[in-house]
Design a protein around this nucleic acid. Structure first.
Length: 562
RNA sequence: UGGGAGAUAGUUUAAUCGGCAGAACAGUGGACUUUGGAUCCAUCAGUCCAGGUUCGAGUCCUGGUCUCCCAGCCA
């Protein structure tokens, strides 16, 4: 068990660590890190890496660092750094005093580059990007040596010094490792170590105009921090021989890299490149749009971090590429919220109901249970009066057989209220039902009939005079296609954006008990789903997000033509 | 046609030395119910293919098929 109470199952990474510990490698130490690049917001795929790295450290009594891989100042911003830290904390993890940046190591990295040059293992190359691509060869044909590969150590040292001093334009030259241009692993065909970028860095300012490539920074950063297990995703497997080479040449601490398959979910996209486009092209309202798979979007949507963690835990850690169903995530969301969310009554599409035989001006405070799954949540009072609203969907003039709700002449229970019977239907000029007249049975207060008679349906409701007005935002998946990345020639993933992914309802009515709740407060609207209070909400104008619907067996019956 | 990796119900996965293929989600049917919620019960459904070794193969061997990753001065 971890601190959040979830059960940790074993996986291939834990088995590797166990083997290391049995063999005494790393002296039984386990030190991991979560190494995001601050060029975008964290998404649920990152949550898997976060849970894995912090979770491993915790369960083995080790530590986990947060390190920003900030080696490309042209793409990275302080806003992203702040957002990433906020999201990691929100998930419930703590890096304590171990907040690091790859840019902290720029001096050391520079020294190591010089050392490689001195060893004859790196050289300054003046090939253009296009030329370098040609010289690199292809997947099936070997590359060939750059004409600059044979420069003397002294010349390389001088040239690299000039690079650092800003004596070259961007793209004029780079520092490359001297490994093997014929290697079947393209990462070993003299990879670029340093490139020239006359860019201002969020942390080092204008100190540097040369920046290390990720491949030259990542492994050594892990080494500097004494990381034992460098956990990363599958696409870096081909880079491992390069990291190993670099670390062995330098003779420094050698972490063990272990790759796992990234988390994918259907009906969404997970690559940062695509998420950035969704934001910059205004397909969504921002990084924290509740339809986004970002952690900030999910937070705003009302997804509890505990549910995200239990979902991630259940997807398990493997080396198989896979795509999880969004339904599994939603299952975990519902499971948590069912246990923890307070119940309230809200009517999304109000239909006015007048209780003809209920005294005018009378108001009763009825007892309602806050959470049937948690007795300690207690009860509250909800006001009942002569004029109420119920859900439009809960009335049908000519109902099908399995419709349990209100219809002319039919009796139903108002939850925690009374049994009511529909006696009249008022329509407007177009024939739309605009008001119902009902009678109530005073003997059924609280929803129980002393004569033991049963009703099939129980409806939620609010008192018209007491209800608060609210805007409610309903969400569906952002994409209408299970795999939006699967595009034909000439198509773009944005072609598959679901035009119904956001539906805004105004004039919704909700019971008064929520009036003073804070942003983010999560509720179950009885019979409708889980909702939370959006950041846009103000007391004069409440705004709710639908986090997820309740499982709805009526809709299935309907679809089957019931 | 180079290198690296991976194939188990619809989905995601488990299976100690080679020893009864086990779960969750989804689906279906039912019980219960003051949420058509929750809960409970039942049920459907699987080892990529072809050989081989073995008393016995998801696991070992041989051959094949399919999928993913790699040709940024991105990470």
């Amino acid at each position: 068990m971890t601190s959040d109470g979830t059960v940790t199952t074993t996986n291939f990474i834990r088995e590797i660590i166990d083997q290391h510990n049995d063999a005494g490698r790393f002296g039984g130490r386990v030190h991991t890190r979560f190494p995001p690049e601050p060029n975008g917001y964290l998404h649920i795929g990152h949550a898997k890496s976060i849970c894995l790295n912090f979770g491993l450290a915790e369960s083995y009594g080790g530590k986990c660092n947060l390190r920003f891989d900030d080696t490309n100042p042209t793409k990275e911003e302080q806003e992203y750094i702040d957002a990433i830290m906020r999201d990691v904390r929100w998930l419930g993890f703590d890096w304590e005093d171990r907040l690091f940046f790859a840019s902290d190591y720029f001096d050391q990295l520079y020294q190591w580059a010089v050392q490689l040059i001195q060893m004859g293992k790196a050289y300054v190359d003046h090939l253009s990007a296009d030329e370098m691509r040609e010289y690199r060869g292809t997947l099936t044909t070997p590359g060939k040596d750059s004409p600059y590969r044979a420069r003397s150590i002294e010349e390389n040292l001088a040239l690299f010094e000039q690079m650092r001093n800003g004596e070259f334009q961007e793209g004029e030259c780079v520092l490359r490792a001297k490994i093997d241009m014929t290697s079947p692993n393209l990462n070993l065909r003299d990879p670029v170590l340093y490139r020239i970028l006359h860019a201002h860095h969020p942390r080092t300012g204008d100190k540097w105009c040369i920046y290390p490539m990720y491949d030259f920074a990542h492994g050594q950063s892990d080494s500097i921090e004494g990381i034992t297990h460098s956990i990363c995703t599958l696409e870096f497997e081909d880079h491992r021989p390069l990291y190993d080479w670099l670390i062995d040449q330098l003779g420094i601490h050698h972490p063990q890299q272990i790759e796992f398959a990234r988390l994918n979910i259907n009906y969404t996209v997970m690559s940062k490149r695509r998420l950035v486009r969704l934001v910059t092209e205004s397909h969504v309202r921002g990084w924290d749009d509740p339809r986004m798979p970002t952690l900030s979007g999910m937070r705003r949507r009302g997804y509890p971090p505990q549910a995200i963690r239990s979902f991630v835990e259940e997807t398990s850690v493997t080396r198989q590429n896979s795509v999880n169903e969004i339904g599994l995530l939603e299952h975990h969301i519902r499971q948590y919220l069912n246990q923890h969310a307070l119940r309230v009554m809200a009517v999304l599409n109000p239909l006015r109901v007048v209780i003809d035989n209920y005294p005018e001006g009378q108001v009763e405070e009825l007892d309602a249970i806050n959470n049937p799954e948690d007795e300690s949540a207690g009860t509250r009072k909800v006001p009942f009066s002569r004029v109420l609203y119920i859900e439009q969907e809960d009335f049908m003039e000519d109902p099908p057989k399995k419709f349990y709700r209100l219809a002319p002449g039919r009796e139903v229970r108002l939850r925690y209220g009374y049994f009511i019977k529909c006696v009249d239907v008022v329509k407007d000029a177009e024939g739309n039902v605009v008001e119902l007249h009902c009678t109530f049975d005073p003997e059924t207060r609280g929803g129980y009939a002393p004569d033991g008679r049963k009703v099939q349906g129980t409806l939620h409701w609010v008192s018209a005079d007491h209800a608060l007005e609210a805007e409610v935002r309903l969400y569906e998946s952002l994409f209408s296609k299970p795999n939006p990345n699967d595009v034909e020639d000439g198509q773009d993933f944005t072609d598959f954006i679901n035009s119904d992914s956001l539906q805004v309802l105004t004039g919704c009515r909700i019971e008064p008990s929520v009036a003073t709740a804070e942003h983010g407060t999560r509720y179950q609207f009885e019979r409708l789903g889980y909702f939370n209070i959006d950041l846009d909400s103000i007391p004069e104008r409440l705004v709710f997000n639908r986090t997820v619907t309740l499982k709805d067996s009526w809709s299935k019956i309907q679809q089957k033509g019931g």
